[in-house]
Design a protein around this nucleic acid. Sequence first.
DNA 1: CGATAGATTGAGAGTTTTCAACCGATGTGG
DNA 2: CCACATCGGTTGAAAACTCTCAATCTATCG
Lengths: 201, 201
Amino acid sequence: MELSHLKEIIPNYKNITLKKGEILYHEGDKPEYVYFLESGLVGLFHISENGSETFLRVFSPNNILGHRSFFAEENYHATSMALCPTKIVAISKEQCQNTCSQDPSFLKNITRILAKDLREAELRLAGLQDKTAGQRIAESLVYLKLKYPQKTWTRKEIAEYSCSTYETVTRLMTKAEKEDIIKKIGRDFEILDIQKLLKLK
Amino acid sequence: MELSHLKEIIPNYKNITLKKGEILYHEGDKPEYVYFLESGLVGLFHISENGSETFLRVFSPNNILGHRSFFAEENYHATSMALCPTKIVAISKEQCQNTCSQDPSFLKNITRILAKDLREAELRLAGLQDKTAGQRIAESLVYLKLKYPQKTWTRKEIAEYSCSTYETVTRLMTKAEKEDIIKKIGRDFEILDIQKLLKLK
DNA sequence: CGATAGATTGAGAGTTTTCAACCGATGTGG
DNA sequence: CCACATCGGTTGAAAACTCTCAATCTATCG
């Protein structure tokens, strides 16, 4: 979705700069703004009572965030955290409201994003039923590394994205390296053969 | 969402009658219509290669369905099946398009539905990480039976909704009955104590 | 009343997680 | 620029939770 013209059509907006690990909003907070990511990377996480974290979505430049809660008219159901130094533009709810009225394609774009994200979430849900931890981890490696290659993903982040544990991620990665499917580079890694990775048992 | 006025604002529509178990659309099909449920109950299921099924969503009277794929401009990612005799109104994509343009609240309503469903899907995803099978089953019993009390849910349906197996559902229900938390009535059941059910270990 | 779909129960198996100990990389301050 | 502290990664062994498989039983319906 091309939202890069947003700054031009919105009269006044707020700039936010986040360091790695800083929180944009917490689960349960009441939405006051809709955000637009200019540079960096943000992760959306759900943190349960017993402390287990689930990595729900990744936001990269030109992505909108905070929109789900705004359009559902609900408080945030998860916590947004910068995964690296990040610059964000905050637009007030009223401004977002106005943009919706003035630019019909704006709302339609957001509807499409929500519809696609719903598909993804539901397929991940189904994947937890019918895929092994190894398969989910392999798919997560492909998704995260190919879509966001600049980021050195930690085993923990990969685990939380694939709904597994960092030990299991480590084990799968060690196995994949032994079969020349990936190559570890320091704490980072590189995918050598996507097809083999996705078929790894 | 109140969509019951849809028949009045849409000039021509198609009526569909489904028997229990009949399919409205299959995963992979290209959307030609957006549907509106008049009476009955429809389930949305994802069926994986190895045959495991995941019960994603329930649609009841006045619900719209098929909208996710339409607004994402994607083929269906799951299969819709009638859970009991059901009457549906089909609206062509063009008519849906027109309604969006003419009635701004229509699109906004759908956006809200998608946003709420995304929350639900993501929280279920997180729940698979941090809740036991028993907890998920208990929550599914509460959700399905309280929201759709008229339907006799099978153990299999409950299992697919909670991402578990019908044997595990049976075991939990037997346990819950021994503790006077639910009461089995033939193949159906009744919840006697919601709070206890949700806390059942 | 028989046939069939659905439910129950038990036992065993298997995948993942959990716990624990140790190793290695990275980055910062002296 | 080195030393060290810290964060992240690796590996092994044991435990646990569910699932799978199998046999049996019970509702429901024609």
